[in-house]
Amino acid sequence: QVNIAPGSLDKALNQYAAHSGFTLSVDASLTRGKQSNGLHGDYDVESGLQQLLDGSGLQVKPLGNNSWTLEP
């Protein structure tokens, strides 16, 4: 069960990665100043990332080996 409060997208993504045990490689300029609506409930990694990114204009991309990145 994930419980991440709304706020900074950077912070939300870092909390989610730490909670879910995956690696997220992101260029900080992509997420700077963006906000997230947070995340509450049970999600697989990709669904949770998509939910956190909702409205940010960013997309999640798998890199393999439980690693992910973001792209515009």
Results as ranks from 00 to 15, higher is better:
residue 1 Q to E: 11
residue 1 Q to G: 12
residue 2 V to R: 05
residue 3 N to Q: 10
residue 3 N to Y: 15
residue 4 I to A: 02
residue 4 I to T: 02
residue 4 I to P: 00
residue 5 A to M: 11
residue 5 A to I: 06
residue 5 A to W: 09
residue 6 P to C: 10
residue 7 G to K: 04
residue 7 G to N: 08
residue 7 G to C: 12
residue 8 S to K: 07
residue 8 S to P: 15
residue 9 L to S: 03
residue 9 L to Q: 02
residue 9 L to W: 02
residue 9 L to D: 01
residue 10 D to G: 08
residue 10 D to Q: 13
residue 11 K to V: 14
residue 11 K to F: 13
residue 12 A to F: 06
residue 12 A to Y: 03
residue 13 L to A: 02
residue 13 L to I: 06
residue 13 L to M: 04
residue 14 N to Q: 15
residue 14 N to K: 15
residue 14 N to S: 14
residue 14 N to T: 13
residue 14 N to P: 00
residue 14 N to W: 14
residue 14 N to F: 14
residue 15 Q to M: 12
residue 15 Q to A: 13
residue 15 Q to T: 09
residue 16 Y to G: 00
residue 16 Y to K: 00
residue 17 A to F: 05
residue 17 A to P: 00
residue 17 A to V: 07
residue 17 A to E: 01
residue 18 A to C: 12
residue 18 A to G: 06
residue 18 A to Q: 12
residue 19 H to T: 10
residue 19 H to L: 15
residue 19 H to C: 13
residue 19 H to P: 04
residue 21 G to K: 07
residue 21 G to L: 05
residue 22 F to W: 02
residue 22 F to D: 00
residue 22 F to T: 02
residue 22 F to E: 01
residue 24 L to E: 00
residue 24 L to C: 08
residue 25 S to F: 15
residue 26 V to M: 11
residue 26 V to I: 13
residue 26 V to P: 02
residue 27 D to T: 07
residue 27 D to V: 08
residue 27 D to H: 08
residue 28 A to Y: 10
residue 28 A to G: 09
residue 29 S to L: 10
residue 29 S to T: 12
residue 29 S to A: 12
residue 29 S to C: 15
residue 31 T to G: 03
residue 32 R to W: 13
residue 32 R to K: 12
residue 33 G to V: 02
residue 33 G to N: 10
residue 33 G to W: 07
residue 33 G to M: 06
residue 33 G to Y: 08
residue 33 G to I: 01
residue 35 Q to F: 15
residue 36 S to R: 02
residue 36 S to P: 02
residue 36 S to H: 05
residue 37 N to Q: 12
residue 37 N to P: 13
residue 38 G to H: 03
residue 38 G to N: 03
residue 38 G to Y: 04
residue 38 G to C: 06
residue 39 L to D: 03
residue 41 G to I: 03
residue 41 G to C: 06
residue 42 D to H: 14
residue 42 D to F: 15
residue 43 Y to N: 03
residue 43 Y to H: 07
residue 43 Y to F: 11
residue 43 Y to R: 00
residue 44 D to S: 11
residue 45 V to H: 06
residue 45 V to M: 06
residue 45 V to E: 02
residue 46 E to P: 10
residue 47 S to A: 12
residue 47 S to W: 07
residue 47 S to H: 10
residue 47 S to G: 09
residue 47 S to E: 11
residue 48 G to H: 03
residue 48 G to D: 02
residue 49 L to E: 01
residue 49 L to G: 01
residue 49 L to S: 00
residue 50 Q to N: 12
residue 50 Q to V: 12
residue 51 Q to C: 13
residue 51 Q to T: 12
residue 51 Q to F: 10
residue 52 L to M: 06
residue 52 L to A: 03
residue 53 L to Q: 02
residue 53 L to C: 08
residue 53 L to F: 03
residue 53 L to Y: 00
residue 54 D to Q: 15
residue 54 D to Y: 14
residue 55 G to A: 05
residue 55 G to S: 05
residue 56 S to T: 15
residue 57 G to T: 03
residue 57 G to F: 05
residue 57 G to N: 07
residue 57 G to V: 03
residue 57 G to P: 00
residue 57 G to R: 05
residue 58 L to F: 05
residue 59 Q to S: 11
residue 59 Q to H: 12
residue 59 Q to M: 13
residue 59 Q to E: 08
residue 60 V to A: 15
residue 60 V to M: 11
residue 60 V to N: 00
residue 61 K to I: 13
residue 62 P to G: 09
residue 62 P to A: 14
residue 62 P to H: 14
residue 63 L to G: 07
residue 63 L to N: 11
residue 64 G to Q: 05
residue 64 G to Y: 04
residue 65 N to A: 10
residue 65 N to V: 09
residue 65 N to Y: 09
residue 66 N to H: 07
residue 66 N to S: 06
residue 67 S to N: 11
residue 67 S to G: 08
residue 67 S to Q: 12
residue 68 W to P: 01
residue 68 W to V: 02
residue 69 T to Q: 10
residue 70 L to P: 01
residue 70 L to E: 00
residue 70 L to D: 00
residue 71 E to F: 10
residue 71 E to D: 05
